[in-house]
Design a protein around this nucleic acid. Structure first.
Length: 793
DNA sequence: GCGTTCAATGTACCT
DNA sequence: ACAGGTACATTGAACGCG
């Protein structure tokens, strides 16, 4: 019979002589189905050395390793664009594949073995064009479940499923959860500290809270949670930080308690898998923390900050309860309710976030073919790579191995020195998708590179400026094909979106898709220059940036010839004096001569410092565009950022440095009297390595040590918030974690002289106001106030 | 011994 | 675990002076 299903998850089960692919999905009636395909045979490629006859090599493999092979096929493939002869070796024992490939590498006539490092489930998806988060049709027979499987129906596939053109998403059951543990001895440890609350919210809105029945006995709590998950049978389980914390904790805790964390659809326990995601067989475990890097404007990526940014924080004004305070709240009868509420609110926020973010994850998953539970956990480089692998397979390009490479930097984009000061009426011309378009225009690709040793192909070559790397003109390389496809698809999607109601489900799904497409398109250049890339060929990235520099330089000449003054530029943008007619002509010329679309934005007024990458522009609608300055940096105290922002506003809108100076003074006065919110004094910095590994002492590291000694759990990548307190010694001696400090501890002189005044002076020094001026004025006022006080006495 | 100078360290940003 | 280009604060050792 024909079964139509939407693919949610895939896993493989291998024994010594059998391979099963388990495809978990949802059919059109809403049944949760498992389709088992037993037809797949694992294989790898043996690349035949030059001057060897592939059929002879195959014959030899058969003679020596006949028992280990199911069959052997001679096949022509490409490797970095060059034709190679291979023997495709199908393995009898899937578990021995890598070992078998290693043995064959030593065989005479075999240069290398490839693709033995591709995981079975991915291999299956790629080879059969089976796509996660997409609909398929399969010819299959229903069968009885032999093992523990929580599926409404189980089928045995007669052949691999076929992808269907059907873009809707079935209705999914989602469970969002939040877990709280109890510890009086620092960070909770699963071998000794219990779970005290698990709050869950289902997509139906059903809320549940699991609590210990007698104090601090969590065995029944977890058992009830497990039973509930089994009963609800969700397709998606979402939480925050769950890949790194919650699942491991639960798993370990269950081991300690002697119970089974039996919640997935194959009656197995959660297990950590590739890219550090935790896999729940048959369902998709999603960690909202993996989405955080999409929101660079959220500087301190706590669960609460992200929820607030997305507008889904349950009760915006209720206090955040820190992990270390959980025990106190739990033990205090009056505060326990607040803790329970906090936990439930958190679960609700998770639900709110997953509702906003799931579309994007599903579109990403289907675009690059990584299963839904891995795709957001995998770094961008790997998402790009899987997309490439999928295409490579289609064109017979072998998937190279990742090889360790020494890091060799190369020249990147060109940045012009800005004309410091205020400018009126400036147009910014941006070359749209410059790197992807350059890669398309000059056919830059790992498989089109012509090394100096090689003969030039008949098609002729494009030679990159400065670096002189050569790329064949034809036929198109696989980057060109992919990028052309991606750019085309994105514009198709955007055209279609224009015909839809922005509130509609379809619009939302398409918007998620075009975002995913954009990410892959923009990351292709970076991927090409990444030493960890399977298809790393430095000249590809180096040529792209060389052509980029050439492009912007050409555009500068054009602008100058047209009588437009260039005041700044960075990589793919030019800031020119705006003249409606001349600018339009320049844009046309760039589009015609350089083949790049130009996007224009006009600033009424713009301010440049002497430094590159730091400026602020005033748009027509009155809004400010602040770039690179302290205002948008996460490692400056809010008090300084607010002052600088307001100074910029006064300068850009009113051009009054006098007014700006008196504003700065007023804040300095308030700061000296500690009349500013305490949180505006907190400085946040990321721990980029374990605290022991720092070569020099630093404030945030000292603050981190203090936190750790008081039970805080801190990992690399976490942000530490501290203030500079009064007292003796270096700054790092006076850094206090913000949670241990009050405004009375703050060294206001530090905040005046090292935060507020420098941030303000960064702008005001172009108007003749120095740091000393700002400090002096403040000091003089202070002196005057003191004198007055004396007098009053 | 003490203040100054400057390279090294560290973080976060821009395109 | 996508790239290079850039600004800036702080530390800490080297340096210069007396």
């Amino acid at each position: 019979m024909k079964v139509t299903f939407w693919l949610l998850d895939i896993n493989s089960e291998t024994t010594n002589d059998a391979t099963e692919l388990w495809l978990w999905g949802i059919d059109e009636k809403g049944n949760r189905v498992l389709v088992v395909d037993r037809s797949f045979v694992e294989y790898f490629y043996a690349v035949v050395a030059e001057d060897f006859e592939p059929s002879k090599v195959a014959e030899e493999i058969r003679e020596i390793h006949g028992a280990a092979t199911v069959k052997l096929e001679v096949a022509e493939r490409k490797l970095f664009g060059k034709p190679v002869q291979t023997v495709k070796v199908y393995c009898r024992n899937p578990a021995e594949k890598a070992k078998f490939a290693r043995a064959l590498r030593n065989l005479e006539g075999i240069k290398d073995c490839l693709e033995d490092d591709i995981r079975l489930s991915m291999r299956y998806l790629i080879d059969n064009n089976v796509v996660p988060c997409a609909w398929h049709e399969v010819d299959a027979d229903e069968e009885e479940s032999a093992q523990c499987t929580r599926a409404d129906k189980i089928y045995a596939a007669k052949s691999p499923p076929r992808l269907l053109e059907k873009s809707d998403v079935p209705s999914l059951r989602t469970l969002s959860f939040h877990m709280t543990c109890y510890s009086r001895e620092g960070a909770p440890k699963p071998d000794r500290n219990p779970v005290i609350i698990i709050s869950t919210v289902a997509s139906t809105g059903e809320e549940r809270q699991f609590l210990p029945n007698t104090d601090n006995n969590d065995k029944s709590l977890i058992q009830e949670f497990v039973a509930y998950v089994q009963k609800l049978d969700p397709d998606i389980i979402a939480g925050y930080g769950t890949n790194t914390l919650d699942w491991n904790y639960l798993r370990e805790r269950c081991r300690t308690l002697g119970i089974k964390l039996d919640i997935d659809r194959a009656c197995t326990e959660p297990h950590t898998s590739v890219y550090g995601h935790v896999s729940l067989t048959g369902m998709a475990n999603i960690d909202i923390a993996d989405f955080a890097d999409q929101f660079p404007e959220v500087k301190v990526k706590t669960f609460r900050n992200l929820a607030e940014h997305l507008g889904v924080a349950k009760t915006a004004e209720s206090p955040v309860i820190e992990d270390v305070d959980f025990a106190d709240y739990w033990d205090d009868k009056h505060k326990r309710t607040a803790l329970k509420q906090f936990s439930m609110d958190s679960a609700c926020s998770v639900k709110g976030m997953i509702e906003l973010l799931l579309d994007f994850a599903m579109q990403f998953s289907s675009l690059v073919s990584l299963p839904l539970d891995h795709v957001m956990t995998a770094a961008v480089g790997f998402r790009v790579e899987w997309f490439l692998i999928k295409h490579a397979q289609k064109i017979g390009e072998l998937i190279p191995k990742r090889v360790e490479q020494p890091y060799r930097p190369y020249a990147g984009g060109l940045v012009l020195k800005p004309q410091a000061g205020l400018h009126e009426n400036i147009a910014v011309l941006d070359f749209k998708s410059m790197y992807p378009n350059i890669m398309i225009a000059y056919n830059l690709s790992p498989d089109t590179y012509v090394s100096p040793k090689e003969q030039e192909p008949a098609s002729g070559v494009f030679t990159a400026p400065e670096v002189k790397h050569k790329f064949r003109k034809a036929p198109p390389g696989f980057y060109k094909e992919i990028l052309t496809y991606l750019i085309g698809v994105r514009s198709e999607i955007r055209d279609k979106m224009k015909t839809l109601n922005p509130e509609s489900v379809e619009y939302r799904v398409l918007d998620a898709r075009q975002k995913a497409v954009k990410v892959i398109t923009n990351a292709a250049y970076g991927y090409a220059g990444w030493i960890g890339a399977r298809w790393y060929i430095k000249p590809v990235a180096e040529a792209a940036s060389a052509w980029g520099r050439h492009t912007i330089q050409t555009a500068i000449s054009m602008a100058e010839k047209a009588g437009l003054k260039v005041v700044y530029g960075d990589t793919d943008s030019l800031f020119v004096t705006y003249d409606e007619k001349k600018t339009r002509e320049l844009e046309k010329e760039i589009e015609k001569e350089l083949g790049l679309d130009v996007e224009r934005e006009v600033y009424v007024r713009i301010f440049f410092t002497e430094a590159k990458k730091r400026y602020a522009g005033l748009r027509k609608d009155g809004s400010l565009d602040i770039v690179g300055l302290e205002v948008i940096r996460g490692d400056w105290a809010e008090v300084a950022k607010k002052v600088q922002e307001h100074v910029l506003e006064i300068i850009l809108k009113e051009k009054s440095s006098q007014k700006a100076v008196s504003y700065v003074q007023s804040v300095v006065d308030e700061l000296k009297l500690r009349k500013v919110p305490f949180r505006d004094l907190i400085i946040w910095k990321t721990l980029t390595k374990p605290v022991e590994e720092y070569a020099v002492k630093a404030s945030h590291v000292e603050a981190a040590k203090a936190l750790k000694s008081r039970g805080w759990r801190l990992a690399v990548g976490d942000k530490v918030g501290y203030i500079i307190s009064t007292g003796e010694g270096k700054l790092y001696d006076r850094a206090k974690p913000h949670v241990f400090a009050t405004i009375d501890d703050a060294d206001v002189d530090y905040y005046v002289s090292k935060q507020v005044v420098p941030a303000a002076a960064r702008v005001l020094e172009f108007f003749g106001v120095t740091e000393e001026d700002l400090l002096k004025i403040a000091a003089r006022k202070e002196q005057a106030a003191k004198s007055l006080m004396e007098f009053m006495k």
